[in-house]
Design a protein around this nucleic acid. Sequence first.
DNA 1: CGATCATGTTACGGTCATCGTTACATTCCA
DNA 2: TGGAATGTAACGATGACCGTAACATGATCG
Lengths: 255, 255
Amino acid sequence: MNDERKQEKISTVQSVDVCIDVLLDVAKNPDCRLADIARNIGETKPRILRMLRTMERRGLVRKSSSGTYRLGNTAIVLGTAASTQVDLVRIANPILEELGQKVNETTQLRIIDNGESLCIAKFEPTRDLRVHSMIGRRRPLHAGSYKVLLAYLPPQVQAQMIPDKLERFTARTITTRARLEAELKRVREAGHCVSRGEVSDQLVSVSVPVLAFDGSVIAAVNIAAPAFRTQDSDIQRYIALLKNAARKISEGLGW
Amino acid sequence: MNDERKQEKISTVQSVDVCIDVLLDVAKNPDCRLADIARNIGETKPRILRMLRTMERRGLVRKSSSGTYRLGNTAIVLGTAASTQVDLVRIANPILEELGQKVNETTQLRIIDNGESLCIAKFEPTRDLRVHSMIGRRRPLHAGSYKVLLAYLPPQVQAQMIPDKLERFTARTITTRARLEAELKRVREAGHCVSRGEVSDQLVSVSVPVLAFDGSVIAAVNIAAPAFRTQDSDIQRYIALLKNAARKISEGLGW
DNA sequence: CGATCATGTTACGGTCATCGTTACATTCCA
DNA sequence: TGGAATGTAACGATGACCGTAACATGATCG
């Protein structure tokens, strides 16, 4: 039935796989109904019903009286435990906060996940106008300063990570492979990446790589700010602060 | 084989159930090994291996190079999404923080889950000596101020929620049913509960119920502080502030 | 106000995914 | 160096799980 869920050689558990699909779908679409979920992931309703019931019993999801589903308390508990168990996040959090307080702008930690950049930690300052950020939000790798994540990859890996069609977000988005590769080369040499309105017109974002012991990139720290209050001098300052933060994270990880 | 996992009537998915067991076990025991997990939940190693591999592929767990398992990035993403989807937690968080800032002590939100009290939200002040708190931590219902959660239950539900043997933690722990029921009556009449060293000798904890639209108790807010700096006058102040916070949470939930 | 659709749910029998067994390779201690 | 633990692979038997079909309920139409 589900034809495209190829498992190659190593054996896994199909039901668990579908169950994760369900969980992620509920996470993405709060207050979704059984039929929506079944449609979204292409399974039958009885199957999804059984899964939801199993998860509801364990508090992973909650069913409202109107029949819609949300994540439940157990998911909160799991997530909290996870933030203390994932070294990268545990180490980065206080550093992101300190950095964000200092510049009074939003800071993020992003990794490559499934060909996209994924936000796994963040800090937002308490000022009225600030860049909104959300853990779990995904962005393409070719646009914005997160492209530092690409810049240090081995050439062939990098090549296969870049899709043929580069989606355009603004007039400044890089949409050809050639220009992207040239930009990546520049980023690699500079050790940082500045994006001015590549993803969203009024936003500036500055990223710096977090290096593993072997020099490979495991994450990117970045500062995101509204363009109107971000001068070139600010950007220079941000770069220096980001490099410092990235170094601290690397050290915190024991390297 | 697993004889005691009775499903009554409604049908669920056994593999998913075991998978949740695995997840919770990894959450509780970071850096556990395959054999530990299999032993803890009483399943065979190959089965657990298949589950872990499935979850690892999806980022729910991570396997370290030394072969130990931890929760992974996807768990963080799920948990973050859950905190925004569970109304109670979303509403309570800023209120807990405001309250905690004001009294400069630790605040918590607890619910009844599986016959225990479960912390699902918290705030800790930034002072050197403070009560430590952790989301996901469970405590028995009979000791400490969390017993407000019991106080408003229908008598027969309350009765079956109280175990026959009440574990003793300190000299002040209530360990007989009769005394506990008398105390619960008093709590119900007062509308709050103060625990002085019932769970831990040097701690004072004050709890107040969060009421649903129908007057039933859905959670408890509490302030926990070291006994030496908590005078009777502080406690009176805490009670008033907690009642205010509890009311705000109830209202925030739309009641 | 029926008709039509979409929903959630139950029942059930067939089948294939899943499971445990067995076996093996590796690592870790003693 | 051996014995015990580990993680992993292969495989065949079986029963858990799946999909189909059918139904109840409630919307949303005309």
